[in-house]
């Protein structure tokens, strides 16, 4: 699936899968031993004294201890290998900041002009490591894209990091894995792994400012968004809206979902969300605004142009 250990799309998850098989085999073996012994004990049903059992006991303890040493070693080696994946080439650097209940995404380019800010969606080039700096603005969240790697918590007051090494093209889904309050269930992240060239062009496109409105309706929408409530929370590059407590909307229409995976991106989705965010995602930190029908049409018409 798109949020699963299989198919593996990252070096870490591949290493996980191999290690998991090792554990499965060893544990399966011991399980069979236990069940076999138990079955034999039940079927025997005769008092024959302890013949052979004390010797068997020593073998068992030895076997168990040895296997555990083996498993601990395998686990440690895998961990070491995983730690080295971040060094395989010049990394893409991202800063991910978790909020109740959405992801703030910043691409940290070599110079400030390359920096990109978006939300709830990251694009990664295949074959190159990505180093993600993780922070939280409120409570503890956890970054987790199972197809690529394991998790790492985002802890307020600290900066953690995680490395990814994508090896398969595709669109994957990540989800906040640490319980973070009312809408923990709706805190997903879209991850697009693509060829380097495509990634470059995406990045370039994200650096651009928002396109200017072309129809009167779009203009009305832009006026509303940049001068009314919306602008107290959201930013749209190239307009006067520059608040930063809510997802950046500059290229909202280019994203695949709305409100951290709550709705798919579509006109209907935008309508539903802006008309009644509390109905769609109860508890979310975007209030019910109460737009009139005409205003709503205009706002959606404008947002749709923000590719």
């Amino acid at each position: 699936g798109v949020q699963s250990i299989a198919p593996s799309a990252g070096a870490h998850t591949s290493a996980f899968n191999s290690l998991f098989v090792v554990f499965l085999v060893v544990c399966g073996f011991f399980y069979l031993l236990v069940i076999g012994f138990l079955g034999a004990a039940i079927l025997r049903r005769r008092r024959q004294g302890e013949d052979g059992v004390p010797a068997l006991f020593r073998v068992w303890v030895g076997l168990v201890s040895l296997s555990l040493v083996g498993l601990a070693l395998a686990s440690w080696l895998t961990d070491r290998a995983m730690a080295s994946y971040g060094d395989k080439g010049p990394p893409v650097r991202i800063r991910l900041t978790a909020n109740q209940w959405w992801w703030d995404v910043e691409y940290l380019g070599a110079n400030p002009s390359e920096a990109v800010r978006t939300a709830n969606e990251v694009h990664l080039p295949i074959g190159r490591p990505t180093l993600i700096e993780l922070q939280s603005n409120d409570v503890i969240h956890s970054f987790w894209v199972p197809n690529l790697a394991g998790k790492q918590d985002l802890i307020p007051g600290r900066t953690e990091d995680i490395a990814l090494l994508p090896r398969k093209i595709g669109v994957f889904r990540g989800q906040c894995a640490e319980f973070c309050g009312a809408q923990h269930a709706h805190m997903a992240l879209t991850v697009v792994v693509e060829p380097e060239a495509q990634f470059r062009s995406w990045w370039r496109q994200q650096q651009a400012e928002a396109p200017a409105p072309r129809t009167p309706e779009q203009l009305a929408g832009m006026t509303y968004v940049t001068t009314r409530e919306c602008a107290t929370c959201h930013a749209i590059a190239g307009t006067t809206a520059s608040a930063s407590v809510a997802p950046d909307l500059t290229h909202i229409a280019s994203r695949k979902t709305i409100a951290a995976g709550t709705l798919p991106m579509s006109r209907g989705g935008l309508y539903a969300w802006i008309a009644d965010p509390q109905g769609v995602k109860p508890g979310a930190h975007m209030p019910y605004i109460g737009l009139e029908a005409r205003q709503l049409d205009a706002v959606v018409a404008y947002l749709e142009t923000l590719k």
Partner: peptide, 11 residues
């Protein structure tokens, strides 16, 4: 096991 748990934790 740390590498396994990082996947399975909180699932």
């Amino acid at each position: 096991s740390v590498p396994l748990d990082l996947q399975m934790h909180d699932t």
